[in-house]
């Protein structure tokens, strides 16, 4: 494992270093991309000096948190409901399977018209983007509960509630967590993309704002922040998922 980590670190470090050299040597010109070290310096500078920085970051995080809660809780509940009615599920299956093949972002302007320009549109956008991943994961999770476990629960005469809490939920948990992971990733994309398209505040909006103003320093600082945030979130969820799977499938 440590060897893998070492190679990963070297790979990523090497790519960053290469980028730095290419930028410094002028192969990539300054208007296209600033060197990674300058991105970091720019990020530190805006975090320390700009008054918009923390309000924007908190705005995005708050909307993101609400969107994730709605997508995960809503997706789980809808998944439970749909799974209970096979007929409904058969009707909705084509919808679920083609959901991510349609460009959901084209609905964002409509959301703005309906909910106004503000947190509500962003939250709905993020939640809409994430919820179906959770629904599908919940359906898969419920499908994959081994029949033997359900039969065992019946043999042990567990009542419905205990059957769910002690057998079905733990058995479904790995897939549910995968759904959670996907839903979080989609919510991040939805909220930040919404901000990027049109919003009054938020870190994604700051990115498009600085881009439109040819403010490359700020743009790359903010971009670095978003990328590091998304990558860290993803890495943490992956590590957590791996731990859970190891525990369950020991």
């Amino acid at each position: 494992m440590s060897r893998v980590r070492l190679i990963q670190t070297l790979l990523i470090g090497g790519s960053v270093a290469l980028l730095e050299i290419l930028c410094r040597a002028g192969v990539i010109d300054h208007f296209t991309m600033i060197p990674p070290s300058d991105m970091l310096l720019s990020l530190i500078r805006i975090a320390r000096t700009e008054s918009w920085f923390w309000p924007d970051v908190l705005y995005t995080l708050r909307n993101l948190a609400v969107a994730i809660v709605i997508a995960v809780a809503g997706g789980f509940l809808i998944g439970l409901g749909v799974h209970a009615v096979p007929r409904l599920r058969r009707c909705l299956d084509p919808l679920f399977s083609s959901y991510y093949s349609v460009p959901t972002f084209v609905l964002y302007p409509l959301l703005i018209v309906i909910f106004g320009i503000g947190p509500a549109s962003l939250i709905v956008m993020g939640a809409l983007f994430g919820v179906v991943a959770m629904i599908v994961a919940t359906l898969t999770a419920l499908d994959r509960i081994p029949r033997a476990l359900i039969k065992t629960a019946r043999i042990m005469r567990l009542d419905a509630l205990r059957g769910v809490l002690m057998v079905r939920l733990p058995a479904a948990a790995p897939h549910l967590f995968t759904g959670l992971k996907l839903a979080v990733a989609y919510c991040v994309i939805g909220v930040i993309a919404g901000e990027f398209i049109l919003a009054t505040a938020g870190i994604g909006r700051r990115l498009s704002f600085s881009y439109n103003n040819f403010d490359n320093q700020t743009m790359y600082g903010v971009l670095l922040l978003i990328l590091v945030f998304a990558a860290t979130l993803n890495a943490l969820l992956n590590i957590w998922e791996k731990r859970l799977h190891q525990r369950w499938y020991r």
Partner: peptide, 27 residues
């Protein structure tokens, strides 16, 4: 080995909001 090294990196690249990279693509 390559799979163990590469998969998490590709997964992370997949999960980042790529819309934010659009300015770079345009530049």
């Amino acid at each position: 080995l390559a799979a163990e090294v590469g998969e998490p990196i590709l997964g992370t690249l997949y999960s980042i909001p790529k819309i934010t990279l659009y300015p770079i693509i345009l530049l």
